[in-house]
């Protein structure tokens, strides 16, 4: 009858269902495939480490999404430290997907996106790629809905500014 048996999270199923979309989200946050894969792997590892953390399967994706965002931020911090002491050419070579052609108009936006503060980038990715509501973004990032709204607004302005800056500096170089 199922008495005493509560719904549980099937990590295998979650892995199969959401790994690709989470890696894609992570790529937008950390901008390299290897790190993105690590970030998502970490998220599943954390879930496996605490199988009781998410008992309701319907909340598992929210858990994983928050986990990926937070782990991605940690990864960026580590990378920032590394970059402070290493020349850019020491970075890992691009993965196969990195070398795939991204249209110029998209590349500009993605480059500008990665000039934003982490929180701004997270809000934009969750809003415009994950299509989350303000409430869901607030829950994912543990901030208020008002902060989501103001961060998104400022982030768009900052993104536009960064794009203009990139465009004008590109012209100067030419």
């Amino acid at each position: 009858m199922g008495i005493g048996i509560e719904p549980s999270v099937d990590i295998t199923e979650l892995y199969a269902a959401h790994r690709l979309s989470l890696v894609r989200m992570a790529v937008l946050l950390v901008d390299d495939f290897a790190s993105a894969e690590d970030v998502v792997q970490d998220a599943f590892t954390a879930l496996a480490r605490r199988p009781d953390a998410v008992k309701d399967p319907s909340k598992a994706l929210a858990y994983l999404r928050a986990s990926v965002v937070n782990t991605a931020r940690s990864a960026l911090r580590r990378r920032r430290t590394a970059r402070a002491y290493s020349p850019p050419h020491d970075l890992s070579p691009p993965s196969p997907e990195d070398s795939a052609v991204l249209a110029e108009e998209h590349r500009e936006v993605i480059e500008a996106l990665h000039q934003l503060a982490p929180r701004q980038r997270e809000v934009l990715v969750l809003r415009y790629w994950s299509n989350l509501s303000e409430a869901e973004i607030a829950q994912t990032l543990s901030i208020s809905q008002g902060t989501v709204k103001s961060t998104a607004s400022r982030a768009l302005v900052a993104l536009e500014k960064a794009m203009k800056s990139t465009t004008s500096s590109g012209k100067e170089e030419r």
């Binding site: 954390a46 998410v54 929210a62 928050a66 937070n70 931020r73």
Partner: peptide
Amino acid sequence: SDDVAPKP
């Protein structure tokens, strides 16, 4: 879920 998700 967001309480238990790993933090940075």
